[in-house]
């Protein structure tokens, strides 16, 4: 009970709800990893079977278990979101840090580059790159990380600049410490916590974009995922029949819940880091 209260004090009600949702999705994903090989894309029932014993959510047009697709999809989505978020946060921290403390020409070049990247629509780039370079899991992660870094890099650069003007850093700088060492030794406790919301938001966007890509038929055909299930919904016109209840509703709700859980955690962490924001939100 005290643990719950402490968590509540740390994250607030929305953050706690988010954490609960995410924990549930992680639990489902772990269960999915324990399922035997081929779960969700082996033919187990009759095509278009409605929900019944052994098939909690029925089967799709090829007789594949929709419940298994849902469970395995949780693992696919979460691991992709996690990997993209790690890669993007690292790129954003390095680029944002360089733009914050590097020489002026470097900073100017990076910022203009970011401005240009921000005009190009992310999703369109992602679709084009995936269409040409392939749909394997690793390739999708790499493309997403290369497309998603500019916004977080800009956020982190602003954070570096704010930290840079703090008194103790100015003192240390006056003593002649090298810039990178200063940033890591004296600035990281100010900037480090900001990596959490950056990480969470990137994971959110990666999961949504990847689902969209799979929905457009550019997903990895060998792994079940929520977006791919919805691709078959679309190409079979499922929402014109009553099958949409067990076929279209669960994967979409799963995407929404996962992204919502991450969003709530992100907001909670941001408020925790920036009490002024919380005051503005509640007072």
């Amino acid at each position: 009970m005290t643990a719950l209260r402490r968590a509540h004090g740390l994250l607030g009600t929305p953050g706690l709800i988010g954490a609960a949702i995410l924990t549930a999705v992680v639990g489902v994903a772990v269960y999915g990893f324990l399922l035997p090989e081929g779960a969700g894309h082996a033919r187990v029932g009759t095509p278009y079977a409605p929900p019944g014993p052994g098939l909690p959510l029925g089967a799709d047009d090829l007789g594949r278990d929709l419940f298994e697709q849902l469970v395995v999809g949780a693992g696919t989505s979460l691991s992709l979101g996690f990997l993209v978020a790690v890669a993007t946060t690292v790129i954003a921290a390095v680029v944002g840090g360089a733009a914050g403390i590097g020489p002026r020409w470097m900073s100017a070049t990076i910022m203009r580059g970011i401005d240009i990247m921000l005009i190009l629509p992310e999703l369109i780039l992602f679709i084009l790159a995936a269409a040409f370079l392939g749909q394997a899991f690793g390739i999708r992660v790499a493309i997403l990380a290369l497309i998603l870094w500019p916004v977080p890099a800009r956020v982190l650069r602003a954070a570096v600049l704010t930290a840079w003007s703090r008194g103790h850093l100015e003192v240390a700088r006056a003593m002649g410490a090298p810039r990178w060492w200063l940033l890591v030794r004296h600035g990281s406790y100010l900037i480090g916590p900001l990596l959490i919301p950056v990480f969470v938001r990137t994971a959110m966007r990666a999961i949504l974009y990847d689902a969209t890509l799979s929905f457009l038929g550019l997903g990895d055909p060998t792994t079940p995922s929520w977006g791919t299930t919805l691709y078959w919904v679309q190409s079979n016109g499922v929402f014109l029949s009553e099958a949409w209840l067990w076929w279209a509703l669960p994967p979409g709700a799963a995407i929404t819940l996962t992204v919502l859980g991450l969003a709530l955690i992100g907001i909670a962490v941001e408020e925790r880091l920036n009490p002024a924001l919380k005051e503005a939100n509640s007072s």
């Binding site: 949504l208 929402f239 279209a248 979409g252």
Partner: peptide, 18 residues
């Protein structure tokens, strides 16, 4: 706003059609 921000566009479109 937070909930609508989390909805995948294609899924919302399908729900509206239904």
């Amino acid at each position: 706003a937070i909930v609508f921000d989390s909805l995948p566009q294609f899924w919302l479109g399908m729900l509206l059609i239904v």
